[in-house]
């Protein structure tokens, strides 16, 4: 995620003698790890009933959930860039007391179970919450049960990926170029536009993929904060869960839609992005 390939420190010394191999004891746990990731997805495919699949994939419930999921996840990703990228720059470059504390706070959604995040959002922005009641009284706005609530929940859980990715890249790049730009007479804004921003671009790709993927898969915060209603708040993960209560085949079909979108994002949209090569 730092935008640089990992380089072992002793590489040069050893390469003169022999090629660095993978230690034998790593192979077994490594293949276990791969199996743990790949096998369940294959199991999902094995559960598919091919005859009924096309109808289930194109059912109104599935299509409306897919459309809602794509719309909200894209919006949440854009919102994360608009708000999270500036936060990353501030965290990497600004010097103020409590930077560490702020960085810790940004990590909070990654550590918190999403359901807790959903409850937190509900108690802040719900009708009875301090901000929610204000919005309700002054402007007649209610956020829970709306698509806005879905986007907020997704942004809450996904934005840290963007902030951490970009901040890591900025710190790894160092401030040298920016200092040189400053000595050449560039102001902070010009330096930001012409030096900092271009340095961020490679890391932006990988961070975007992670942010979008996290937003797309969001479940706990959404169902707690936004509820679940077809076309308004029932995104694909929520629809999978609801369908699984009654019709497992429909749930499996919707899961395949999610797997499909995820593979598309990983393989087609940004081949090198996930490896941090941009």
């Amino acid at each position: 995620m730092t935008g640089r390939p990992f380089r072992p420190v002793r590489r040069r010394k050893q390469s003169s003698e022999r090629v660095v191999g993978v230690p034998a004891p790593l192979w077994l746990p490594a293949s276990c790890a791969l199996g743990l990731i790949v096998l369940p997805v294959l199991g999902l495919f094995a559960r598919v009933d091919p005859a009924g699949l096309p109808a289930l994939l194109t059912s109104p419930a599935a299509l409306s959930a897919l459309e809602l999921s794509l719309r909200t996840a894209v919006t949440a990703t854009l919102l994360s860039v608009l708000l999270g990228a500036p936060l990353a720059v501030v965290l990497a470059r600004a010097r103020f007391p409590g930077t560490r504390l702020v960085r810790g706070a940004v990590l909070l959604p990654l550590v918190l179970p999403p359901v807790v995040g959903g409850l937190a959002l509900l108690y802040l922005l719900g009708r009875t919450g301090p901000v929610g009641s204000l919005l309700d009284e002054r402007f007649g706005l209610t956020i829970p049960y709306t698509t806005t609530a879905v986007v907020l929940a997704q942004t809450f859980v996904a934005m840290p990926f963007l902030v951490m990715g970009l901040e890591g890249a900025l710190r790894a790049a160092g401030t040298e170029y920016e200092r040189i730009a400053a000595t050449l007479g560039a102001g902070p804004w010009l330096t930001f536009r012409r030096v900092t921003l271009p340095m961020l671009l490679p890391a932006l790709g990988s961070s975007l993929v992670l942010t979008f993927a996290r937003a797309l898969g969001e479940f706990g915060a959404t169902i707690t904060f936004a509820g679940s209603l077809r076309g308004t708040t029932r995104t694909l993960p929520l629809a999978v869960y609801t369908e699984a209560q009654a019709d497992v085949d429909a749930a499996v079909a919707m899961s395949l839609l999610l797997v499909g979108v995820a593979l598309l994002v990983i393989l087609v949209a940004r081949p090198g992005g996930v490896q941090g090569r941009g």
């Binding site: 509900l122 009708r127 009875t128 829970p144 169902i223 509820g227 679940s228 209603l229």
Partner: peptide
């Protein structure tokens, strides 16, 4: 015309007890 269709009756109850 519900604002939400929950997967669990306890979630319905929570939406009401929390005033949402």
């Amino acid at each position: 015309r519900p604002v939400s269709e929950e997967d669990d009756v306890k979630d319905v109850l929570h939406k009401v007890t929390s005033g949402e």
